[in-house]
Simulated assay, not measured.
Amino acid sequence: MAIPEPSPDDISRGLAALERHLADLAPTDPVRTGGETRRVRQLRAEVAEAHLLADLQEDDTPLLIDSTRVRRRRKAAQEAARLHALGRDPVMRAWQATRMRRLLVTAALVSLALALAWSTAGVQAFAADGAGPWTAGWLFAWLVEPFMSVALLVVVSARAYLATRGAPLSDRRLIRIERLFLGLTLGMNAWPYLPGVAEVFSLSRLVLHLLGPVVAVAVVIALPIILASFAGLDHAQAGTPRTGPSYRRNPLDRYPADGPDLAALTARARRLIAAGELPPDPGADKIRRALRCGMDTARAVRDALARRPPAGTQGEN
């Protein structure tokens, strides 16, 4: 059977189909077609990410944000600074002094009351004079020390209160009354245990019975002195801080009496700044210590440094 010869149209259609088939099987050329392979897309994404990271790393904003630890430390520092400033306030210092004074007065009066109560047994033994237990004389002997102690506490409390108001009570008659009561308490406690009076002398027993009256005497003498010192406190002056360094003149062994060479000192200060021994903008006190000069000279050097240096001194060593 004879095969018919293909026409030119059949050949054209076959070639077109073959080209389409080959085009579907061949890989896409990214240069000619403008497409991207997966590796190209992945590398392009990495490059874009690197550019973004580089831009973000140049931004210092995250470094300006305080962490939790920094905020806690800053809060504690602010609280300490406010407490320090409050402690220097005259009103706060007056309140602290009043509180301490009240505490001292309370402790002193409690100590005085205990000391007088301690001596009650010794006074009772003296006042009973050998009376039998639970007899009238023995019972009334227990009242001798309390009524003397109450009278003494009246005098001491009045002097203490008036001393807290800045009006110390120093009447000689009251002082004599205090001494009388304290002397009676001391004598009645010590008498039965003195050498020659006691059947068997014991130093420890004598000291033990003298302990209460001695403490009472110490409290009565010390309390008015302490309260008078509290009344004389100047809270405003005590809370005033020192605002500057103490004034000093030029030492005569280093600088002449007619005044130092200000230009030479200024040049020397610039050399110290260049060497790092002085800060770029030093204060008068730092200049004074570095140049060992007086405060007036240090201020003049500071003002000269603040001005533009004269020509020819920039490279001076």
Rank of each mutant, 00 (worst) to 15 (best):
P4E: 13
E5L: 13
D9K: 06
S12E: 12
R13I: 09
R13E: 10
L15I: 04
L18P: 13
D24Q: 11
R32A: 15
E36N: 02
R41P: 08
Q42N: 11
Q42R: 13
Q42A: 04
V47Y: 08
H51G: 14
L52N: 05
I65T: 15
S67Y: 12
A76P: 06
A80E: 11
L83F: 02
A85V: 11
L86C: 01
P90V: 09
R99W: 06
R101S: 11
A108M: 03
A113I: 09
A117D: 14
T120Q: 14
G122A: 12
G122E: 14
F126W: 12
A127E: 10
G132R: 12
P133Y: 01
A136T: 10
L139F: 09
W142T: 15
L143C: 00
V154N: 03
R159F: 02
L169K: 02
L174V: 00
R176V: 04
E178V: 01
F181S: 04
L182F: 00
L194H: 10
V200T: 10
F201S: 07
S202I: 11
S202R: 10
L203H: 11
L206V: 04
L208D: 00
H209L: 00
G212M: 02
P213Q: 04
V214W: 13
V219P: 02
D234G: 00
Q237P: 03
A238P: 08
T243E: 09
T243R: 01
G259C: 12
P260T: 12
A267G: 13
R268P: 08
E277W: 06
P279Q: 08
P280G: 00
D285A: 01
I287F: 12
I287L: 14
R289Y: 06
R292H: 12
A300T: 07
A311R: 10
G315K: 02
G315S: 07
